[in-house]
Design a protein around this nucleic acid. Structure first.
Lengths: 153, 153
DNA sequence: GGCTTATCGCAAATCATTCGCAATTGCGTT
DNA sequence: AACGCAATTGCGAATGATTTGCGATAAGCC
């Protein structure tokens, strides 16, 4: 609740700097995103925001997501279900593990894997611009470790 | 040229076993796929096959790709451009490095990364069912290493 | 050769996402 | 507080990849 308003204000500044406007719908979508602890898709964001403002349109959600992405405020991911899912980008880099049964998304990061990726790319004569790493797994019985758990819709 | 016919024959057996038929169009698509050393999408496969049989339809290509995928004869990949690309599945497992400038796809495999993935998943209480690893990179000047290079359309 | 039904070609249907455009609304300026 | 204009919105239509319904065609078994 506290960090959210600050983030919205910061974003408004960035917009202004680019000659853009902080509209009611952008403010609303931003709030929905900030309150989300999962990886919602456009329709999911629209549904949540629509509850607060029934005049909002899905097009505006898509347009805003694109804007937020180019501004670097959010990250877009396309998992195997084909739709684009979003999450705010104020955190450290991480990859995703998707529970094939529930669709739940668990975040993780591994400097070792990143290092190996860079090494492999270098061996092939490339430098990495970005990467996509998704693990699709099934919960093992008996184990109960936790870490940055976030569920998808 | 030799292995192709054999592979087609093997596939025909599998089809028959499932009560399905080896049609002209399936034979043709299979041949196109076997001759491809890249990762073509449905339209690309259609174009190549259409050159040999102008009565072929794109629907048939899509239907055949789905069939081949469920039969495990091919693998489908959806890189960042959004379209599904296919490659025959008779090779060892590998991941992909995509040249962000040319779209060229380089294949590689890393037992170390696979091991790390399994370890990470286990720590989170999961066992991996499958994964998706794509590196997007840019060719480094001066370096000239090669390895399993395959270009996209 | 004939029969059954899997498969095909075609056009229409989906689905997520984008776009065109007229109506609206931020917001810097009076 | 009102003005003016470009940025933005909502809506519906357009897109592009992929799927599907259906009548016509052709595998494969007798």
């Amino acid at each position: 609740m506290k960090g959210i308003d600050k983030r919205v204000a910061l974003f408004e500044e960035e917009l202004r700097r680019a000659g853009l406007r902080m509209t009611q719908q952008r403010r609303l979508i931003l709030r929905v995103l900030a309150e989300a602890d999962d990886h919602p898709d456009a329709k999911g964001i629209f549904t949540r925001a629509f509850a607060h403002d029934p005049t909002l349109s899905l097009s505006t959600v898509y347009r805003t997501m694109k804007l937020l992405e180019t501004q670097g405020a959010i990250e877009r991911h396309a998992f195997e279900d084909g739709v684009s899912r979003y999450e705010h980008a104020d955190q450290h880099h991480h990859d995703h593990l998707i529970d094939v049964e529930t669709g739940q998304v668990v975040e993780f990061s591994s400097p070792e894997i990143e290092a190996l990726q860079a090494k492999i790319a270098a061996e092939l004569g490339y430098e990495i611009v970005r990467h996509r790493l998704e693990l699709y797994g099934r919960k093992m019985p008996g184990t109960s470790k936790r870490k940055d758990v976030a569920k998808a819709d």
